[in-house]
């Protein structure tokens, strides 16, 4: 399973890099779709159908909206000549990536090996979740019972996003 995941992750990385460098914005958007749909296959192979359904649906809707936006624009990326400031940005980014990798390595050293990640907390969820919540689908039981605050936060974020889009587009329309 790990080799398959590695192959799919390789494809996703190639797609992401291509999306950065593509001249035509439409092909960049399509290449970004590779990342999303590759993630769907990863979720399915890690036996997480809930996440896979959400990811495939969100990816499709996002792709439709992005394609509509790109078709309506000039479709070409505006290139600006490199300056000293961009060099500083690249250096800062590389230093930041180095720091992140260092601390990530430190953090993952204490975790269980890949595939054996049943922690103490999730053991309780998997053993008693169905009896305590009464939901046959454990994911929904966790989402709306044990972690209901998180889910309320997610719903509020979506609400705020819609509010923000309405506000920003109204402001621009009035000018």
């Amino acid at each position: 399973m790990e080799t398959l995941l590695t192959i799919i992750l390789g494809f996703m990385i190639i797609g992401a890099i291509y999306a950065l460098h593509a001249k035509d914005l439409l092909s960049a958007v399509i290449a970004q779709g590779i990342v999303g749909y590759g993630l769907v296959i990863c979720f399915l192979h890690l036996s997480a159908p809930d996440l896979a359904i959400v990811q495939i649906v969100v990816e499709t809707i996002t792709l439709i909206i992005m394609v509509a936006v790109v078709l309506d624009s000039s479709r070409e990326e505006i290139k600006s000549p490199p300056s000293w400031r961009s060099t500083i940005n690249v250096v800062v980014g590389l230093v930041f990536i180095g720091f992140m990798l260092y601390f990530f390595d430190m953090a993952t050293a204490s975790l269980e090996p890949f595939g054996e990640h049943t922690l103490r907390m999730s053991q309780t969820y998997t053993q008693q979740g169905a009896a305590q919540t009464g939901a046959a689908n454990l994911v929904t039981g966790v989402l709306w019972d044990f972690r209901a605050y998180d889910t309320l936060g997610e719903a509020t974020i979506l609400f705020t996003a819609a509010l923000g889009v309405l506000t920003v587009l109204r402001m621009k329309g009035k000018k």
């Binding site: 809930d50 359904i53 939901a135 994911v139």
Partner: peptide
């Protein structure tokens, strides 16, 4: 949503 994969968001 509480029986099969999926749920409110999907």
């Amino acid at each position: 949503g509480h029986l099969t994969p999926g749920g409110a968001f999907a």
